[in-house]
Design a binder for these strands. Structure first.
Lengths: 157, 157
DNA sequence: ATAGAACCTCAACTAAAGTCGAGGTCAAGG
DNA sequence: CCTTGACCTCGACTTTAGTTGAGGTTCTAT
């Protein structure tokens, strides 16, 4: 174990510091989420910003974002030079919408469980529980929205 | 097509009204998330509250909760009689914590992306991006918490 | 110089959450 | 009666996100 923190990381170091298994790092590389330089002996060497990429990948994973989507996001980072603050900020901005939507969806589910689930409402077309969060809006004429929260007191069961 | 809405639903009706494929309903039943009466001819008949169970399953699914966890939750509902308001309310209460945690995690990710990702922080042990949300608290002595949001200006990269 | 840890590739396996198709049964209208 | 559409089971296949193992190479410390 070479304690010296060099400019680059071995895969073992990246694994340990990120808490992600070596096999998973191989896998991320195979899927194009991560890249590495190879030494003369064909071993991987990671630039230090890989640590942040991996953190980003795992953070996204934890909230249920599929790797394919993460890959697309990361593809916007330059792969020649080390990403700058601005590069990450751009990526960040692109994701706010997605994250906000998911937060809204979760919040809605939580509230629906508290407010609505005991109401007897079984109309799949109207209950908050039943609607995908975004798709909900455009059902029938009258453009009723998800967020004009009329918590369905229909009792058709 | 028998338009008469009877006391029970066929699998086709449940599928159509819930928007879930028949094959998925079979699958849910196989996994113990759903149950049905059988007719003389071995066909499934669903009580009307199945509609709500399915809505609940899908809502949970949409926010990334695995079926196994949903199954456990639904197991708390009585399977002899139709669940009452109170039954659902109990289940709802049990889930608030889980949902709140997920909402917190997502919010943290969103904020970390906005505030922290460009900060140069690569300390996997300290950055909001890197921590599983709950586990974060207990690292080293000093009990620093996740929510005393000191957005890591360490710049050790 | 050599043991052992860490690394490499590639193929096979796993688990979750389904879908698809084959081959057969049930039920309702003409 | 008999056709047609909805239903049945069961096994095979799919995708995502990896893990595990075999067989071989590289690195580094003694």
């Amino acid at each position: 174990m070479k304690a010296m923190t060099a400019a680059e990381l071995t895969i073992g170091q990246l694994s340990e510091r990120s808490g992600v298994a070596v096999s998973a790092l191989h896998f991320y590389e195979a899927k194009g989420l991560l890249s590495s330089r190879r030494t003369g002996g064909n071993q991987r060497r990671y630039a230090r910003d890989s640590l942040r990429r991996v953190a980003f990948i795992r953070a996204a994973q934890r909230v249920g974002i599929p790797l394919a989507m993460v890959r697309e996001a990361l593809a916007q980072l330059p792969d020649a030079r080390t990403p700058t603050r601005a590069d990450w900020a751009r990526l960040s901005a692109a994701w706010r919408g997605e994250l906000d939507a998911r937060i809204r969806q979760l919040t809605t589910l939580r509230d629906a469980l508290s407010d609505c689930i005991g109401c007897g409402c079984l109309s799949m077309r109207r209950c908050a529980l039943a609607n995908p969060g975004d798709v909900a809006a455009t059902v029938g004429p009258g453009a009723r929205r998800f967020d004009e929260r009329r918590p369905c007191r229909t009792r058709n069961s």
